[in-house]
């Protein structure tokens, strides 16, 4: 229930307020009125960013505790025969089952179901991982 409230607060409320303030800035009659609303908009945007960040963090933390796997268990999720395709990078297991570049659980000669930290750091920046669903932690 608390989460539902938060979601409605973030997606609708803040967005509506931001739109409203932007309108007021556009149609402000004086410089001071404009400055006043710009300050309010700044506050609102900071709030929005904060909430968004918190949610992402909360989601990620929640996901991290979902399914932890050992390297041996991870090998089951290699994407073959329609199975999910998971890969581990830096101790976190990601789901690449629906990732466009991972057709059939394979990716430029690499196979899912493995710890690919080394291969990942050879080709990509860490930023691209943030859009991937997290499965859990890799148990060493």
């Amino acid at each position: 229930m608390a989460k539902e409230y938060r979601e409605s607060y973030t997606t609708d409320d803040i967005k509506r307020r931001i739109d409203y303030l932007k309108n007021r800035i556009d149609f402000a009659e004086s410089k001071y009125e404009k400055l006043y609303f710009m300050e309010l908009l700044r506050q609102e945007e900071t709030k929005s960013n904060q909430v968004e960040e918190d949610e992402t963090k909360a989601d990620r933390t929640a996901m991290i505790t979902k399914t932890d796997l050992t390297l041996e268990q991870l090998t089951q999720y290699d994407g073959s025969g329609g199975k999910p395709a998971y890969v581990a990078v830096d101790g976190i297991i990601y789901d690449v089952s629906r990732e466009g570049s991972w057709g059939g659980g394979t990716h430029f000669g690499l196979y899912a179901g493995q710890d690919l930290t080394e291969q990942f750091s050879g080709c990509h920046q860490a930023g691209i991982l943030k859009n991937l669903p997290i499965v859990g932690r890799l148990i060493k």
């Binding site: 629906r98 466009g100 570049s101 057709g103 059939g104 394979t106």
Partner: peptide, 23 residues
């Protein structure tokens, strides 16, 4: 919609069979 062919000859998306269309 996440509906995938399980073997060749099925009419659904062949992504899980290794289709390289997305890249």
């Amino acid at each position: 919609k996440g509906i995938f062919a399980k073997k060749l000859g099925e009419p659904e998306c062949m992504f899980k069979l290794g289709c390289r269309g997305p890249i």
